[in-house]
Write a protein that binds this DNA or RNA. Structure first.
Length: 359
DNA sequence: AAAGCTCCCAACCGCGGCAGT
DNA sequence: AACTGCCGCGGTTGGGAGCTT
């Protein structure tokens, strides 16, 4: 177990970052990617440790960050996820596009905790406070089966009326919890779509690098005939298929503002395969009007994002394969103040392609 | 106006895990 | 097996902003 070498070094700056430092870091990562974080400060000309650079990038400078106040829907999702995952902020953050674990943690500690207590819910156990007072040995985060507590955070209808294995927070139960939610939430919208299996491909937290060997959507669309556990098994099998690669991009349209979509039908850069319903894995249409947006079908994107979140959750690998910092951001987000040229953009695309050899 | 208080959040700290040697 | 280097995570802190008295 090593101690980060930078922790021992003196003369490194600490505390708040200046705009100049931010600019240096952004320029460096935009141009070269972060690579090994410990070498970033030196290469970027910063008197910071690599850890500090990493943190600054992930929590503040990354262009795909949403910023701003959390919506009620986001807060609700955080509470639900916390009930299942406990203080696994990074896993919770993986389900919220554009939000960092730090941000969510802060929100939880400063606001949500208080709100839950005001509503008579213990934020640690998600049980009614009255119940917790006589049961304070129950420290591990878990959700009560008690309907009152469910209702009091205004969970969606399914969650409050269906008997999920909420007490058991082991991975299968967790996966089943969200799979049930996914299936019940989307069976109407997805099953009725004539091209729904292609639509589904856009939800998956990975992109197809070539035509898939079989119809991938069958995994989820015979929902009336398969149990959730069967579906999970099939999904897990599918992700181990060598022809289907897990994308290193964030599953939640990373590199984008909240409205960009992850299911573009438009080949905007001439580099990625024009999609036949199969999503490119990088969210590279960010900041660019997509055909769907132009055609006015953007409304479909919202539920796609949700599906994306739930499905990636099933794999239990979101914090590994899909961490946003795995790649660097290439888009025209305002954080670059419009300084990034089309040329740089294209170079970055090529660098990604070279690095990951997926195209 | 200013002192005191509270809240919020960016950043730090320290630990565990993993990979490489 | 032991050690080192690095990454990522969760807990904690410090200070600025806003509010109250």
């Amino acid at each position: 177990m090593g101690r980060h070498s930078c922790c021992y070094k003196q003369k490194l700056r600490k505390g708040l970052w200046s705009p100049e430092e931010d600019e240096k870091l952004i320029k460096h990562i935009t141009k070269f990617g972060h690579g090994c974080w410990s070498s970033v400060p030196k290469l970027a000309g910063l008197e910071r440790c690599g850890k500090s650079c990493r943190l600054r990038w992930i929590n503040y400078l990354r262009p795909d960050l949403k910023r701003g106040t959390f919506s009620q829907q986001e807060e609700k999702l955080i509470i639900e996820l916390h009930a299942v995952l406990g203080n696994k902020w990074s896993q919770i953050a993986a389900q919220l596009p554009g939000r960092t674990d730090n941000e969510i943690k802060n929100l939880w500690n400063s606001s949500i905790k208080k709100k839950l207590r005001q509503r008579g819910i213990d934020p640690n156990t998600h049980k009614p406070l009255s119940e917790v007072n006589t049961d304070d040995h129950h420290k591990a985060p878990s959700v009560s089966n008690d309907k009152n507590s469910q209702d009091s955070y205004n969970l969606d209808e399914k969650a409050s009326t269906t008997s999920y294995p909420l007490i058991d927070t082991s991975p299968p139960a967790t996966h089943e919890f969200f799979l049930n939610r996914f299936v019940s939430t989307h069976e109407n919208t997805l099953l009725k779509k004539p091209d729904s299996h292609h639509q589904l491909a856009g939800f998956l937290p990975f992109g197809y690098t070539q035509q898939p060997p079989s119809e991938p959507a069958d995994l989820f669309f015979n929902t009336d005939a398969k149990s959730s556990s069967e579906l999970i098994t099939e999904y897990n099998t599918s992700i181990s298929n060598p022809l289907v690669s897990i994308s290193p991009r964030n599953q939640n349209n990373w590199g984008s503002n909240s409205n960009s979509n992850s299911n573009s039908n438009t080949n905007t850069n001439g580099f990625f395969p024009t999609n036949n319903g199969y999503n490119h894995p990088w969210g590279l249409t960010d900041g660019i009007k997509t055909q769907n947006q132009i055609n006015g079908v953007e409304g479909e994107q919202d539920y796609m994002k949700w599906n994306d979140q739930y499905l990636s959750f099933f794999t239990g690998k979101t914090s590994i394969e899909t961490k946003p910092e795995v790649g660097f951001i290439v888009n025209n987000n305002e954080v670059y103040h419009g300084q990034q040229s089309v040329d740089t953009y294209n170079k970055n695309l090529q660098r990604i392609a070279t690095t990951y050899g997926q195209f």
